[in-house]
């Protein structure tokens, strides 16, 4: 079947099997590999993308469910060459990543938090990111990054 949606501001139509997951469509059909898959029980959060502005684990959605939706992945934050999004910059500045595998999901989850809580406390961040596993950082620098990213976004707006 064909489905259409907007992906990183670009209208997109793809042929999919109805049983395909959004994460598979993004990674396999569209070859956009920034979105990662770290588990098969929707626990790790590496596959988080935005669907209509909300963070969603893309391994939990069947492709037909995103018909007409506005989807954003990590590649849609600043492209390949644009200046980094303040949240990306904050992760880099604060050593908020090591192996980089959880990072796209962390960024997308953090941005959803900041969209409704522009000045999150550390406890808000730790609670919000409970659905995103990082095995490298011990989270301390991720929390620091989200605080810095949120501050930079407040300043920019």
């Amino acid at each position: 079947m064909k489905i259409s949606f907007v992906l990183n501001d670009r209208p997109t139509t793809v042929e999919v099997e109805p049983s395909m997951l959004l994460s598979e469509v993004i990674r396999e059909t569209l070859s956009m590999t920034g979105t990662h898959v770290g588990c098969d029980t929707s626990q790790c959060g590496a596959c988080v993308v935005h669907v209509n502005g909300k963070s969603v684990k893309s391994c939990t959605l069947l492709a037909p469910a995103v018909e007409g939706a506005d989807i954003r992945t990590v590649e849609g934050l600043s492209g390949d060459t644009g200046p980094l999004h303040p949240m990306q910059q904050a992760f880099r500045d604060n050593h908020g990543l090591q192996c980089g595998f959880c990072t796209p999901g962390m960024l997308m989850a953090a941005l959803d938090l900041v969209s409704h809580n522009p000045d999150p406390a550390e406890s808000d961040i730790r609670e919000w990111l409970e659905g995103n596993i990082c095995r490298c950082t011990g989270y301390q620098n991720i929390v620091k990054s989200v605080i810095a990213g949120a501050a930079a976004m407040r300043q920019a707006s």
């Binding site: 590999t33 920034g34 880099r92």
Partner: peptide, 21 residues
């Protein structure tokens, strides 16, 4: 200094084995 490798990781431009076709 800020990590060189992060320039690609924060953009989702890492190249992991599962990404290779």
């Amino acid at each position: 200094p800020k990590r060189k490798e992060d320039a690609r990781f924060v953009r989702g431009r890492g190249n992991y084995v599962a990404d290779i076709k």
